[in-house]
């Protein structure tokens, strides 16, 4: 399963790689990283929609996570990938907007990786 993690903080890559080290080692998951919305879109285009699941931050310089969500869910051909929003700004406004534009889930930071792992497993199984 290819998972694209979009976040402007580079440490996210290390954190995710360490957190999912067992899944990566076992080949269960293939983590890809983009550090901006634009980069994520480019990646999706270049890699022909390899990622089946996108985890995206919302607050990013340039294209925000919500815009990215909008681009992916509205402009890409079906079936769109699963998009889960992960943000420190878990306020109602963001939540409502994310849901409106078709986010599949909405998680708040700090991320509880146990919960996230469970959700990912659920998505894959579905």
């Amino acid at each position: 399963m290819k998972v694209l993690v979009v976040d402007d903080e580079k440490d996210v890559q290390i954190l995710f790689e360490q957190r999912f080290r067992k899944e990566i080692r076992s080949g269960e998951m293939d983590l890809l990283f983009a550090f901006s919305g634009e980069e994520a879109l480019r990646f999706m285009k270049d890699h022909n929609h390899e990622a089946v699941l996108i985890l995206s931050d919302i607050n990013m310089p340039g294209m925000s996570g919500l815009e990215l969500l909008h681009q992916i869910k509205v402009k890409y051909e079906k079936p769109p990938p699963v998009v889960m929003m992960i943000t420190a700004y878990g306020d109602d406004e963001n939540y409502a907007q994310a849901m409106e534009w078709g986010a599949d889930d909405f998680l708040t930071k700090p991320i509880d990786f146990n919960v996230l792992k469970q959700k990912l497993k659920d998505k894959i199984n579905v």
Binding site: E9, D11, L15, Q18, R19, A88, D91, P110, I111
Partner: peptide, 21 residues
């Protein structure tokens, strides 16, 4: 609060990973 959650995310998760490591 919102902004603190970002570093806190790393602090908590890295420390937890460290325990595992």
């Amino acid at each position: 609060a919102h902004e603190i959650q970002n570093p806190l995310n790393f602090v908590n998760n890295f420390s937890e990973v460290n325990i595992e490591l």
